[in-house]
Design a protein around this nucleic acid. Structure first.
Lengths: 243, 243
DNA sequence: GATATCCTTATGTATAAACATTACGAGTGG
DNA sequence: CCACTCGTAATGTTTATACATAAGGATATC
């Protein structure tokens, strides 16, 4: 999955899934075509129907199969293309690259949210949240710049945390699990502040990541991360599909 | 939930998963803490252990739980943050936005691959592949520019396809399912060609997506997609996690 | 005290059986 | 010919049971 979206799979079910995948990739079973039903496959693979079911559900989750009750299972006309990103903690990313991690907070204060942020997180415009800006470094060089809004109403313990010292990213990961998240990428030319904090040039193309998370009390945080020029964000594995 | 990586889940298992998720989000069960074992939860929820197992495996897949044989299940110290992107067919994206789709191929010819591409796909440098460049339009305005390399050795039928007419993206989706894929985002300042084909200015920040796919015969295709300035690529749903 | 060994426990996987649910498609009646 | 009904086939979900496997912890050994 991009890896396997779901957890680990069992040997036998796994084997069945691989074999079905192979038949699809090698055009033994073509797109749109109906494949044998669970009972038949169970006989062929000498397994219980439940095991075949597990394998086929896995493949359906990957988007390779379309399954409908009574109608049967068929190879997806256009395999859904899914990719799973794992967003690591910044410090881990930096240290994994063999660099020394450090970070610095450049601003932190309560402030009414601008309209675009309000719209993104679903709060009334002008609501007062904690606003902060910080830069994460690898071996002293800017790695990423984050511009973050925090909502104390969704995470009360947040009031007590000292983000001049603590890393907001890590604090949130450890103390404020979320129920829903949105993630988006875009590109922007570095503005004056971006350029200064990332120590690059005005106009330099920057990869921007926007992330917002919610729990049952409302939005927890929304952040705009600007990566150092040339940075790639990618997947390691991807589920099967088309293209 | 994220699209829940895996397909749909069952009512009862689903309910158990939601309840466990709630207990974690509301700090009833804290990070690192061990939760009751499957047998106990089965009694509490009046379900079979297999059902509890299904629910917990789902949550483990989301990264909210860490499970180990004999050691039991505990709330993940730092919930893995995963986001699933669904890469749609360009035409669908454009049409879904209510625009008229069209595309134009600007170049197509066999050519030896440059070293960086060779390294990315794992082929010897200088190998000859099909190289093509095309622009996809929405209502006549450039939507995205793709620079693609195709490997006939991994998809033989490819030789017969006429990509001056056909949309390579769609042809591949329908005819060349893959087993593995890599996806990465970055940002680049538009070069002269990007600017001309996307009808924008030199230096404009562009969101770049790189995608490479493989089947059992080797790399099928690798493509660099440059999006129209201001374009966002994002997720709709994301699995639970931290931050 | 350090190390090796075994027992026990919690999860991992598979199976058979049963019932729920959906919707295809045939049959019925107008 | 159309609309409606209903039987039935395929998947969806749960359950009970059984055995496999990993690893924590106690015990035994040196």
């Amino acid at each position: 999955m991009i890896d396997k979206p779901a957890g680990s799979t069992s040997p036998k079910a796994q084997h069945i899934a691989s074999e079905v995948r192979r038949r699809i990739v090698e055009h033994e079973w073509r797109q749109g075509e109906r494949i044998p039903d669970e009972a038949d496959l169970a006989i062929e693979f000498d397994a219980a129907r439940a095991t075949v079911n597990k394998a086929l559900q896995l493949l359906a989750g990957e988007g390779l199969l379309d399954r409908r009750r009574r109608a049967g299972t068929r190879v997806a006309i256009d395999p859904v293309r899914k990719a799973t990103f794992t967003i690591s903690i910044v410090r881990e990313q930096v240290e994994q690259a063999g660099m020394a991690y450090s970070h610095r907070v450049f601003a932190q204060r309560k402030s009414p949210i601008p309209d675009d942020i309000a719209a993104r997180v679903g709060l009334p415009p002008g609501e007062v949240l904690v606003h902060m800006r910080a830069v994460h470094y690898g071996d002293g060089l800017p790695f990423q710049l984050e511009d973050r809004w925090l909502n104390p109403r969704a995470a009360p313990e947040l009031e007590k945390a000292d983000f001049w010292q603590l890393n907001a990213n890590e604090w949130l990961v450890r103390n404020a699990p979320y129920l829903r998240a949105e993630l988006a990428f875009s590109a922007e030319n570095a503005n004056r502040r971006d350029a200064r904090l990332l120590r690059t040039q005005l106009g330099q193309a920057l990869l921007i990541m926007h992330r917002t998370t919610w729990n049952d009390l409302g939005p927890i945080t929304t952040v705009r991360v600007a990566f150092q020029p040339g940075h790639f964000v990618g997947t390691e594995k991807t589920t099967a599909g088309g293209d």
